[in-house]
C-alpha cells in the first residue's frame, strides 16, 4: 500500500514537474511599431530540452519574436513566460536573473569590438562571478575549444572571419552554462560549408550541454537539420507547427510556398507588386 502511495505520489510529482518545466511560453503576444502590427497574437510553447526553429520571411517579425523571449522587447499585449515566470511581472533585477539562464547568438555575432576574443567570451563571467582574470581566461579558452577555435583568444574580433565570429559569439553565449540558447539567423551570411558546420555545432551544443534552443531562420536546410519542431511565422501569427517531417509534407499552401522558395503563391511580399 505504501509503495503504491509512493508510486502515485511520484507520478504526480513527475507530472507536475513536466508542467512547470515548460521552458518558454508565448501567449497571445501582440507587438506593433509605429502603428504597424508585427506580431498579432503569437502562441508558442517550447518544452525543456526541445529545439524549436521559427521560420518565416524577411520582415515577418522573427527577430521581434526572439527579442520578446529574452525580454529585450515587451509585448503590447499578451504574456511571455520563461520557466513559469511572467517576464512582465519581474523588475529589472529579476529580469537579469532570468537572462542568466539564456545565451544568445546574434546574427552578426555582436561581439564587443573593443575587447579581445577571450574578454568577449568571459564577459558574463567577469560581470557575474567572482572568478579571477586567469580563471576567466582559462574558461574562455575551454569554451572556444568547444566551438572548434584554438589560438584565437588574444585576437581582436576585427581580425576574425564571419564564421569565426559566429563561433566566438556562440562561445560567449554558452560561457555562463545557460539552460536556453537563442539563435538569430545562425547561418545567414555564411558559405554553405561554414553554415553546415554551424548547424553541426548547434546540434553538438544541444547534445553536450542539454539545452533548450530556439532558432529563427529562413534557411530551410538548417531548419530541417537542427529542429525537433518547426513553427512558421506569417502575418504576425504562428500559422503552422510540426516536426521537420510534418512540415516537409504539409499541404498548407503558405508553408509549401515558403519551404519550396517560390515567388508565386499566397504569401504577399511586402512592397513587391504582383
Amino acid at each position: 500500500m505504501v509503495s503504491l502511495n509512493m508510486f502515485f505520489h511520484l507520478t504526480c510529482q513527475s507530472w507536475q514537474f513536466e508542467i512547470v518545466n515548460e521552458m518558454i511560453e508565448l501567449i497571445d503576444v501582440h507587438k506593433a511599431f509605429a502603428g504597424k502590427a508585427v506580431l498579432r497574437g503569437v502562441n508558442l510553447k517550447v518544452e525543456k530540452g526541445e529545439s524549436v526553429v521559427v521560420i518565416g520571411g524577411s520582415g515577418s517579425g522573427k527577430s521581434v519574436l526572439l527579442k520578446h523571449i529574452i525580454g529585450l522587447l515587451k509585448p503590447d499585449q499578451g504574456t511571455v513566460m520563461v520557466s513559469s515566470i511572467d517576464l512582465s511581472e519581474v523588475d529589472e533585477d529579476g529580469l537579469n536573473e532570468i537572462r542568466k539562464k539564456f545565451g544568445m547568438l546574434f546574427q552578426s555575432a555582436a561581439l564587443f569590438d573593443s575587447m579581445t576574443v577571450w574578454e568577449n567570451v568571459g564577459f558574463g563571467l567577469k560581470r557575474h562571478t567572482l572568478l579571477t582574470e586567469e580563471e576567466i581566461k582559462d574558461t574562455a579558452i575551454q569554451k572556444l575549444r568547444l566551438v572548434g577555435l584554438v589560438n584565437v583568444a588574444d585576437l581582436m574580433p576585427s581580425e576574425l572571419s564571419g564564421g569565426m565570429r559566429k563561433r566566438v559569439g556562440l562561445a560567449r553565449a554558452i560561457a555562463m552554462e545557460p539552460e536556453i540558447l537563442l539563435y538569430d539567423e545562425p547561418t545567414t551570411g555564411l558559405d554553405p560549408i561554414m553554415a553546415d558546420a554551424i548547424n553541426e555545432l548547434i546540434i553538438k551544443m544541444r547534445e553536450t550541454l542539454n539545452v533548450t534552443s530556439v532558432a529563427i531562420t529562413h534557411d530551410m536546410k538548417s531548419a530541417y537539420k537542427i529542429a525537433d519542431t518547426i513553427a512558421m511565422l506569417y502575418n504576425g501569427e504562428i500559422v503552422a507547427k510540426g516536426t521537420p517531417e510534418e512540415i516537409r509534407n504539409t499541404s498548407d499552401p503558405v508553408v509549401r510556398q515558403f519551404i519550396e522558395g517560390r515567388a508565386e503563391g499566397p504569401i504577399v511580399l511586402e512592397g513587391v507588386e504582383r
Binding site: 525580454g71 537572462r99 546574434f106 546574427q107 552578426s108 564587443f112 573593443s114 558574463g124 560581470r127
Partner: peptide, 21 residues
C-alpha cells in the same frame, strides 16, 4: 560614434542578454 556603432551592430542588445544594464 562608439555607442551608435554598438547600437546598430546589436552590441547593446548583447550586453542586455548578458544580464548587464
Amino acid at each position: 560614434a562608439e555607442l551608435g556603432t554598438m547600437r546598430v551592430t546589436e552590441q547593446i542588445d548583447a550586453l542586455e542578454t548578458l544580464a548587464t544594464n
